[in-house]
């Protein structure tokens, strides 16, 4: 077991991603929308593929835009199915994301011959390659690990979003109607949150994969909610959990020679189960949001 620069980079990137996901996940959980986060992270797949096809590489801004648009489209379809077509929320989520995800898979297979898209990477990510995936400018200067920069940018934007809209996010999570009545743009806030979730999903998929992002959105907030009933401690604990998951995940993966992202999520799961065993009985709502992973 060693602590070198590579380990530091991987843990740092993992922490940044886990914190970004966790911070957004807190509000998704409080809005009883954890499963919508799940839906978004699957639904962005066709967007990633199309963006990838347009850009010709996994790194284009088109990929992020494509995925972002698909994520928002997914939330709009879910809302529409629920409100206009009167489909149950869980059913509309299930229909929307499996459909979009399936389209994504078909697109990957159809386009895979033309472009070099690593299906494994999109689905599972590979955080271990971070140190060798460098950001090289046109003039040839090496600026450092590309994905770490992406994660840092993502974290900055998520933290800024939550900092500046903290009171609106909290109020509309607690009582959306009251927010609308006193003139808070509830719909806009909701859409902004969904956009941030989509963006975070895309920004993170290369590192941890589109599927494991879901776990980072849902598990740390649900775990923290077992321990505290206050907003600020909830956010702080979620952040600490994000860091702990990255550190433990990295070293356990090192020890067992297995996937780092997979180990991070396993650690998160174990921490949740332990918390649930200790704290479980009294708080049910956090538990229901995690039951579906």
């Amino acid at each position: 077991m060693s602590f070198d620069q590579n380990a530091f980079l991987i843990i740092l990137t993992g922490s940044l991603i886990a914190i970004s996901c966790g911070l957004l996940g807190v509000f998704m959980m409080l809005r009883k929308m954890s499963m919508t986060g799940d839906a978004i992270s699957h639904a962005v797949l066709p967007g990633i593929v199309i963006g990838f096809f347009v850009a010709g590489s996994q790194r284009g801004i088109e990929v992020i835009i494509g995925a972002g648009l698909l994520g928002i489209l997914a939330t709009l379809i879910i809302d529409w199915l629920r409100q206009k077509a009167r489909v149950q929320l869980d059913a509309s989520i299930g229909i929307t994301f499996t459909l979009l995800f399936a389209i994504g898979i078909i697109l990957i297979n159809m386009l895979a011959n033309n472009v070099d898209l690593d299906q494994e990477c999109v689905l599972y990510g590979e955080i271990a390659y971070i140190p060798i995936d460098l950001w090289i400018t046109g003039s040839g200067a090496v600026l450092g690990p590309r994905i770490t920069y992406l994660a840092l940018l993502n974290f900055t934007l998520v933290a800024g979003f939550i900092y500046f809209f903290f009171k609106e996010l909290t109020l509309t999570s607690f009582d959306e109607s009251f927010g609308s009545v006193i003139g808070i743009p509830s719909k806009g806030i909701n859409l902004a949150l969904m956009s941030m979730v989509s963006y975070t999903t895309v920004s993170s998929f290369e590192a941890v994969g589109a599927i494991l992002v879901v776990a980072l959105l849902v598990v740390p907030p649900a775990t923290a909610f077992l321990w505290t009933k206050n907003m600020m401690p909830l956010i702080k604990l979620t952040t600490v959990l994000g860091i702990a998951i990255s550190i433990l995940g990295y070293y356990l993966a090192y020890l067992f020679d297995s996937s780092i992202a997979g180990m991070m999520v396993s650690v998160a799961g174990v921490l949740f189960l332990l918390s649930a065993l200790i704290k479980g009985r009294s708080r049910k709502s956090a538990g229901t949001s995690i039951a579906n992973i």
Binding site: T170, D175, T228, K229, N230, L234
Partner: peptide
């Protein structure tokens, strides 16, 4: 109309 289990 709201969930009183909210952390507040």
């Amino acid at each position: 109309s709201v969930d009183w289990n909210f952390p507040a």
